[in-house]
Design a binder for these strands. Structure first.
Lengths: 150, 150
DNA sequence: TAATAACATTTGTATATACAAATAAAAATA
DNA sequence: TATTTTTATTTGTATATACAAATGTTATTA
């Protein structure tokens, strides 16, 4: 369905405006679907994101700044996100021995297990969406998104 | 910059995953820019969105359900959004005389003035982004986003 | 080396989001 | 017309986001 029909616009929209609305709307649709996937695992989108960043460290701990800069949403409150993950015992947090300002966050075995359970479901979600486009179209979409945001 | 560099990914990403991350990341970048625009006007993104929906009614009031279905983010709490707009005297709210369950929300003169002040700034924002692409590319991006979300 | 600046993270506060439950009115139906 | 169902909106509650200010540590420099 076209974006103007999705939001039942009563006014004529410029192409520039349509692209912006379309971008936000599409992202909301796909992230709502993703949140459905995460719900039974009691994780928010950004909590999942942090876990994946930590797994990407391959055993090495990550400090708060590293997590921050790798997050998709740069404005999240990393401290409180990690607090939540700590309560669920999905990560551990230690003061860096060589620099007491820094915290070292590491994903636990339990955290890795949650991700492993999620992996096939997440991949399926990604593929269901990706299958709506050809490989060339996916590459084109990536190219256009990168170019668009500047 | 490519999405894998933006989020400093340490692992290899599939094309399907890259598109999804790219979509979220791009939307965050452009909506952060938009929030900067709204900040001096003391409006949140969704408050602005509601005002625009109400202006689109061209004098006719809108009830809560109409606002809800036209919003980009379907999970917002429309009641509390309208509460905030009421406090700022940008809208008025009345019980529908023919159906007491319904509320009639109308944008005020003050609300219209705020939108009019914002119009040129918002259009500039849209155009700065749109100018990164050709007309054909913008149309292609719209097409791909619509097809991608299913 | 004492004072100051820079860095890394946390805390506070207001608002927004997500979603279930409650309320209240209207419509359907027995 | 009394009861039930549906519709429209609000309220409650937990969590998330946005962003400024505070805290504590390390590095710089006078």
């Amino acid at each position: 369905m076209k974006i103007e029909d999705e939001i039942k616009s009563t006014v004529e929209l410029s192409l520039a405006k349509k692209v912006l609305l379309n971008l936000s709307f599409t992202r909301n649709v796909v992230s709502d679907k993703f949140l459905e996937i995460l719900k039974p695992f009691d994780l928010s989108g950004e909590q999942y994101n942090v876990l994946r960043i930590l797994r990407g460290q391959k055993g090495k701990p990550a400090n708060m700044s590293i997590i921050q800069e790798r997050m998709i949403s740069k404005n999240s409150n990393t401290t409180r996100l990690v607090d939540k993950l700590l309560l669920k015992e999905l990560v551990i947090r230690n003061i860096c021995p060589t620099n007491k300002r820094k915290m070292e966050i590491t994903i636990t075995e339990k955290g890795l297990e949650v991700l492993e359970k999620l992996d096939p479901i997440v991949i399926e979600h990604e593929n269901i969406l990706a299958n709506n486009l050809t490989t060339e179209e996916l590459e084109q979409l990536n190219y256009l998104l990168e170019k668009y945001r500047n």
